[in-house]
């Protein structure tokens, strides 16, 4: 059989998974484009890992449909997973075996061509020198890298990495980031679940935000951030009076004052002329302006904004 021609590496429709009364994955509609790094973000307990487990057939779905690389799963799970590599939760291995032997065991369940890929995979993740040491002697970071090497055995088109930065030191995180980028450059799709939003912002092209089992936003990072609030920091002589003046103007969503000045949050889409008007008004009010700094909203602050807003509305 052949896969249906689709541009989506991962596609889900109304996917739902319950654990008793708790809905871990709630009616999820997700589309991950091929050939990109895709971040899957959400607070703890949001259902990120459960969704990955459903996609990989590690647990059974209650309702909904899903496909990987155009193959409907679980119907064609074996064919789909032949081109998928994944780390779910922390990567664990037989600790009494060496890294190489663990990969040999995993390779035995894949196609015969996966065996010659063991050495290059170990080389790529920088474990060649320690490949013949027992995994019991590996650090957490080395296990993470061994997990990535295990993913590469199947020459995957799609990699699903659940919290791959866990346990890595800054250098290890940098290496992992570069590896993910290089995988994407090779045309592979990487789905990255992480709570390290800054890492996702640096690594991924697109994200989906999940909260309470439901995908509440998905899109490219630049598009999503374009729809977020604008923050302006103004360093001035009298922060209390400045806060009062800006609050009267009613253009700001929120104004807070500090010892050095005020922090103004403006609605998304606010133009530069509004900021100029604010500055003019403060100057007219006799307040000395020392510095005006429009801040780019980070994915982290935007993430907190949308997840808390979602929490209030639900």
């Amino acid at each position: 059989m052949t896969a249906t021609e689709t541009e989506w590496a991962v596609e889900t429709h109304a996917l739902t998974k319950r654990f008793g009364p708790n809905v871990a994955v709630n009616d999820v509609e997700l589309r991950v484009p091929r050939g990109c790094a895709f971040g899957y973000l959400g607070p703890n307990g949001a259902g990120k890992t459960t969704l990955i487990r459903l996609l990989l057939g590690l647990t059974e779905v209650d309702s909904g449909t899903m496909s990987l690389l155009g193959y409907e799963v679980p119907k064609h799970r074996d064919i789909a997973l032949a081109r998928v590599g994944a780390i779910v939760d922390e990567p664990r291995f037989h600790s009494h075996l060496t890294g190489r032997q663990n990969l040999e065991i995993l390779s035995a369940s894949r196609e015969p061509e996966s065996r010659p890929r063991i050495a290059p995979a170990l080389e790529r993740v920088g474990l060649s020198q320690r490949a013949d040491d027992r995994v019991a002697e590996y650090s957490m970071g080395m296990r993470q890298r061994l997990g990535v090497a295990a993913c590469l055995l199947g020459d995957p088109q799609l990699l699903m990495l659940d919290e791959p930065m866990n346990g890595l030191d800054p250098a290890g995180m940098q290496d992992m980031r570069e590896m993910i980028k290089s995988l994407v450059e090779e045309g592979r799709t990487v789905v990255l679940s992480s709570h390290l939003l800054d890492e996702v912002q640096r690594t991924c092209d697109a994200v989906a935000i999940v909260d309470k089992g439901r995908v509440i936003r998905q899109g490219s990072i630049s598009e999503l951030l374009a729809g977020s609030s604008l923050v302006v920091e103004i360093e001035c002589s009298d922060s209390e009076r400045a806060r009062s003046l800006v609050a009267q103007r009613r253009t700001a969503t929120e104004v807070t004052s500090g010892p050095e000045g005020i922090r103004v949050i403006l609605p998304s889409g606010t133009g530069r002329d509004v900021i100029a008007g604010l500055v003019r008004e403060l100057a007219d009010g006799g307040i000395a302006i020392y510095r005006v700094q429009p801040m780019q909203t980070s994915l982290e602050s935007w993430f907190l904004e949308v997840t808390s807003r979602f929490g209030e509305s639900s």
Binding site: R31, R34, G35, E186, R188, V215, G219, S220
Partner: peptide, 15 residues
């Protein structure tokens, strides 16, 4: 939901 423009299908890889 902000629509994501689907990326091009990845290059044909071995296997």
């Amino acid at each position: 939901t902000i629509a994501i423009e689907a990326g091009p299908a990845g290059p044909q890889m071995p296997g």
